[in-house]
């Protein structure tokens, strides 16, 4: 341990929900997207799942909203170090979308893509079992565009860059294919509990 002379840090809090190396951002919700925030109206939004599925399908705003509503209540964790607790997102579980397209048994990975062209990769298993959503509400109000509205992917058990804003679709693959930040030095998996921030962590 390399102790920094004179450094004490913030008062310690016992928060078992805080992954290693993270701090609680409190009320702040920093915006860190690397591209220009798009002007994307709900009427222009669509969400498609294709690749290794039995029935590729595209949902528009109304069709996605016709699926059973589901909410996430909990924490989110950004690779830059902040975590935010008590967030409440509303949308639809990805399981409901997958039930329509029926992933093939050979599908192991997913490349998520945004309407801006941003991409992020994930193992398919990280997106099933009630642990990932397409969300359009934050705290009961429409998701702001700078936070990915009208709709974003939400995978709260991975670092938040995996939760692609302005989500346009998922392509199911039989191999892993790096997304935008993963090609820029960030970790393939991005598990905050194992501090998988950068390639090689």
């Amino acid at each position: 341990m390399n102790v920094t002379r004179g450094f004490t840090g913030r008062p310690r809090v016992h928060n078992p929900g805080l992954p290693p190396g993270q701090y609680d951002a409190g009320a702040d919700w920093p915006v860190l997207s690397a591209e220009v925030t798009p002007d994307l109206a709900p009427a222009d939004w669509s969400f498609r799942i294709d690749g290794l599925v039995e029935r590729p399908h595209t949902w528009d705003w109304d069709a996605a909203h016709a699926l059973p509503a589901s909410a996430y209540d909990g924490g989110i964790h950004c690779v830059t170090g902040w975590s935010k607790f008590g967030v409440r997102f509303g949308g639809v579980s990805l399981d409901a979308f997958f039930a329509v397209v029926r992933p093939q048994v050979s599908a192991t990975h997913v490349l998520a893509r945004s309407h801006t062209g941003y991409t992020a990769n994930l193992p398919l298993a990280d997106l099933t079992g009630g642990r990932a959503w397409i969300v359009w509400e934050y705290d009961g109000t429409p998701l702001p565009s700078e936070h990915g509205g009208p709709a974003r992917l939400l995978v709260p058990h991975r670092y938040f860059w995996k939760s692609a804003k302005w989500i346009a679709g998922l392509t199911l693959l039989d191999h892993d294919e790096p997304g935008f930040w993963e090609r820029n030095g960030y970790h393939e998996r991005g598990n905050p509990w194992e501090e998988q921030r950068y390639s090689g962590d």
Binding site: A34, E35, P38, D44, S46, R48, D50, G51, L52, P56, T58, L111, R113, S114, H115, T116, G117, Y118, T119, A168, G169, T171, L172, L173, D174, H175, E177, F180
Partner: peptide, 18 residues
């Protein structure tokens, strides 16, 4: 993605890549 049959975003309006 190599090997994936339908092109991704087949019926999504083409947008510039991030």
């Amino acid at each position: 993605p190599a090997g994936a049959s339908p092109a991704p975003g087949a019926d999504v309006p083409a947008r510039r890549f991030a």
